[in-house]
């Protein structure tokens, strides 16, 4: 039995990761889940988080995921991400600005403001800052 499976992380802009992996950790709306080979077939929405990927051989990788979907299939697992970045690709200044903006929106008490969207934006910004900050010493 194979102990690895094929993982694809796709965003509307590009395919950021594709290859055999032994394990990944993602966060769905229901909580954090780890996927090993021969996981049951699953479809679930993902919330903004940092995904951890353990490739078959090679270094552990982490990406920010700005929400999306996870499909665990027979032999292939696909992460459909709204956006995804490596630590080295993150624009820290931009993420910091986005965080401030989101905090302002959340702080204001206004009717019909989009609290869910602001919270998602905040989560995305904080994930980016977190991943960019610890890009040198990666621990999970």
């Amino acid at each position: 039995m194979a102990t690895t499976y094929h993982l694809k992380i796709v965003t509307p802009e590009r395919t950021i990761f594709e290859g055999p992996v032994s394990y990944i950790i993602v966060r769905s709306t229901e909580g954090e889940i780890g996927i090993l080979a021969h996981h049951m077939q699953l479809i679930t929405p993902l919330i903004p988080h940092i995904i951890t990927v353990y490739p078959e051989n090679g270094k552990t990788e982490q990406f920010t995921i700005g929400g999306g979907f996870l499909e665990v299939g027979d032999t292939t697992t696909i992460v459909l991400a709204d956006s995804a970045e490596r630590a080295s690709e993150i624009d820290v200044a931009r993420a910091e600005r986005a965080r401030q903006r989101a905090l302002e929106v959340i702080g204001k008490v206004e009717p019909n403001m989009d609290l869910i969207r602001a919270k998602r934006a905040l989560a995305r910004a904080e994930n980016r800052l977190k991943l960019a900050g610890r890009s040198t010493s990666m621990t999970h």
Binding site: T29, E30, P45, F69, D74
Partner: peptide, 24 residues
């Protein structure tokens, strides 16, 4: 399609998944 042989689990449930997935 090889994935069709086994069943799928929708988390948390089909309604929630479809509500996000289909418009997208």
């Amino acid at each position: 399609d090889p994935s069709m042989r086994r069943s799928y689990v929708f988390e948390p449930d089909t309604q929630t998944v479809f509500k996000d997935l289909l418009p997208h």
